[in-house]
């Protein structure tokens, strides 16, 4: 036990070690220590969803866990979705459908929708809305977000078909 702790995990395929206070949340560690500022901080108490990252395959709120709890985890942030400069199918769909305005909530919505479609490529509009109820967007009214996620399903279905 000491005032600081070392935590190691993988983010977007790259190994990182960070020296943090135990009270440092995962999202603050990603942004301040790893300089991965794509993940946004909104409410800091688990209601807005802006900080959603993918931890061992599951969408989680990075403000609702301390970085030390993520020891050994495999993390994907919004920066890990695109293939270099090529937008992922979900990101391309967001662009096509104008599914963002200010963009503050978008990293959390993309990571959430990505895990949803990775696990449930047939998710219908109701299921998408239910899942995205954990992500607050104050600009769009969600209509185009839902349309973008629905439209991106084809790419995830193909991925599933290819994996079988």
């Amino acid at each position: 036990m000491s005032g600081r702790a070392t935590v190691q995990f993988t983010v977007n395929g790259k190994h990182y070690a960070a020296d943090v206070e135990p009270r440092t949340t995962l999202v603050d560690c990603l942004r301040h220590d790893l300089k991965l500022t794509g993940t946004h901080v909104g409410c800091e108490h688990g209601v807005c969803g802006a900080c959603t990252v993918i931890l061992d395959g599951a969408a989680v709120r990075a403000c609702l866990m301390f970085a030390v709890q993520a020891e050994g985890a495999d993390i994907v942030t919004v920066e890990g979705l695109a293939d270099g400069d090529r937008l992922s199918p979900l990101q391309a769909s967001f662009r096509k459908h104008h599914a963002l305005q200010c963009g503050f909530c978008t990293p959390g919505i993309l990571t959430t929708a990505h895990t949803l479609l990775s696990e449930e490529p047939d998710a219908d509009a109701d299921r998408i809305r239910e899942v995205l109820s954990g992500n607050i967007c104050r600009c769009t009214g969600y209509v185009q977000i839902v349309e973008a996620v629905l439209d991106a399903r084809a790419a995830y279905k193909q991925k599933w078909a290819a994996a079988l």
Binding site: G49, A58, T112, L116, S133, G134
Partner: peptide, 9 residues
Amino acid sequence: VAHYQIRNR
């Protein structure tokens, strides 16, 4: 229970 992301943890 809460939201998708919270149900994951």
